[in-house]
């Protein structure tokens, strides 16, 4: 038991105040791999903001004198079939890839969490309807569902966001519902009810905080999936338009030169790979620190 007992008379000196955030950081610091991944993602986010300003070349400007050049001092990552600097395109594309995945996951998170809370807290018929709808979505493979949605809505970055969001919602809803069901069993929830607390208050003050740690873990993992899905859709020509420096688009347009100038495919591929890997590593690290089931063992 990790309870510190305070003597009502003694121990007046304010010993290190307990703070959940400090506690989290103390444990997270020990996860070296996750820490490195976090630094990587942090750098990516910085690049997303300053990318266009530090890019050595204009990512849209063709240069027919330097087509499909390999990596060199002038072009760190070489050039593509129109002679555009791949490194600059990657820098600028970071913003697109992160925006798409973050906003899709964020929207999915909000919708899924609300549905999950309602479903888990109220139970009964509402729960059944929401969960059966989720089951329908779960029965499609993720990417296939996204393709279908984009096919209906038409190609474009915004529609990719909507598609990725829609296939995220059921996973979030189910996760939150499970966490809600177990949080609902806490005696202090019953205590709040006995005090006359409204449903909204109980849900947001007493139940939702119990789901946060699981949500944080899941969001990081999900961002990785979303980047993959968005790139996949763009690769299939359903996402960003061909001239945008989106990583999936770059991958797609470079595939004809796989044999002759493999770096055109390799560079965006590595970018996608590292980003998804980093998000998953962070997710694993967070799980070790936050998940109560693992924490206690």
């Amino acid at each position: 038991m990790s309870t510190t007992v305070i003597d009502s008379k003694k121990a007046q000196q304010p010993a290190a105040q307990y703070s959940p955030l400090k506690e989290f950081w103390r444990n997270y610091k020990k996860k070296k791999v996750a820490l490195i991944a976090s630094v990587f993602i942090f750098l990516l986010i910085v690049i997303a903001f300053i990318g266009p300003y530090i890019a050595p070349y204009d990512p849209y400007e063709p240069n027919y004198d330097a087509i499909l050049e390999g990596p060199s001092a002038a072009h760190f990552a070489g050039t593509d079939e129109y002679g555009r600097d791949i490194f600059s395109r990657l820098l600028v594309g970071t913003k697109i890839s992160l925006t798409v995945s973050f906003s899709a996951v964020f929207l999915g998170l909000i919708a899924g969490t609300i549905l999950g809370l309602i479903s888990g807290y109220f139970g009964g018929r509402v729960d059944k309807v929401i969960m059966r709808c989720c089951d329908v979505f779960f029965s499609f493979p993720d990417l296939l569902l996204a393709i279908a949605i984009v096919a209906i809505l038409g190609p474009g970055i915004n529609n990719v966001i909507i598609a990725v969001m829609i296939f995220s919602v059921p996973s979030f809803a189910r996760l939150v519902r499970g966490a809600t069901l177990s949080a609902k069993e806490n005696v202090y929830v019953e205590a709040a009810k006995s005090m006359g607390a409204s449903h909204t208050r109980i849900i947001f003050k007493h139940i939702f905080p119990e789901t946060i740690s699981e949500l944080i873990i899941f969001v990081t993992m999900r961002v990785g999936t979303a980047i993959l899905a968005a790139s996949g859709l763009s690769f299939l020509g359903l996402g960003a338009s061909p001239e945008t420096p989106e990583w999936g688009v770059m991958l797609s347009s470079g595939r004809d030169y796989l044999g002759t100038a493999s770096h055109v495919v390799l560079m965006p591929g590595i970018a996608i790979f590292l980003t998804v890997l980093a998000f998953n590593l962070i997710g694993d690290g967070l799980r070790d620190v936050l998940d109560p089931k693992i924490k206690n063992s």
């Binding site: 309870t3 007992v5 003597d7 009502s8 008379k9």
Partner: peptide
């Protein structure tokens, strides 16, 4: 009134 022991068991 019951007698009681003040304070609690030390950790």
């Amino acid at each position: 009134e019951l007698d009681s022991i003040k304070g609690q068991v030390p950790s």
